[in-house]
């Protein structure tokens, strides 16, 4: 399994967690399954909303974007694409900072922990680490044999397969 496949898989798990918390927030799920911590205290606090939307809904959107990028990056068309790598790093990096802020609020302001939020924060840190590894790989291949700094470099792709050659190249 490649780095981007792992990112897609972890993002899918993130989507499911964020979907669960969003459905709770809008009243579709009645009780949160929360064996550790105080999920209801955290999710009914004033910090469970950001710019008019539930924080969980922002998480859902972010995980969907990460999943879409990672899935696109596993296809041959965008394999090794630096743009995809940079977007993954930027989105997951921002999300790590945001998750860190939320964890700070849980620990020092709300004084309650939501286990699902902690799992999501850990997932995001792992995704960020993998995104950095993916970027390093993509840049390494780009230096080895690419004139492309965006889509379609010519080195081996992130899936390990040789890249298709540009038909215009002799």
């Amino acid at each position: 399994m490649t780095t981007r496949m792992t990112i897609a898989l972890l993002s899918l798990i993130g989507i499911l967690i964020a979907l669960y918390l969003t459905l709770y927030k809008v009243g579709v799920v009645g009780d949160l399954s929360c064996s550790i911590g105080s999920c209801e205290t955290v999710n009914t606090s004033q910090w469970a909303t950001f710019l008019g939307l539930p924080v969980a809904a922002w998480g859902l959107g972010t995980y969907i974007a990460l999943f879409t990028l990672a899935m696109a990056g596993t296809g041959e068309r965008y394999a090794g694409s630096l743009k995809i790598s940079w977007l993954l790093v930027a989105l997951s990096g921002w999300s790590v900072l945001f998750s860190g802020w939320l964890t700070y609020l849980e620990l020092f302001v709300i004084h309650a922990i939501c286990i699902w939020c902690v799992v999501s924060a850990v997932l995001m840190v792992v995704i960020f680490g993998l995104s950095l590894a993916d970027l390093r790989g993509a840049r390494g291949h780009g230096v080895a044999g690419s004139r492309d700094h965006g889509l379609g470099s010519t080195g081996p792709d992130a899936t390990g397969r040789p890249r298709p050659r540009d038909p215009a190249t002799p």
């Binding site: 897609a8 596993t74 296809g75 041959e76 899936t159 298709p164 050659r165 540009d166 038909p167």
Partner: peptide, 10 residues
């Protein structure tokens, strides 16, 4: 020159 193979997904 052979055309590039069609893009395959994961």
């Amino acid at each position: 020159v052979k055309p590039p193979p069609k893009s395959r997904g994961p």
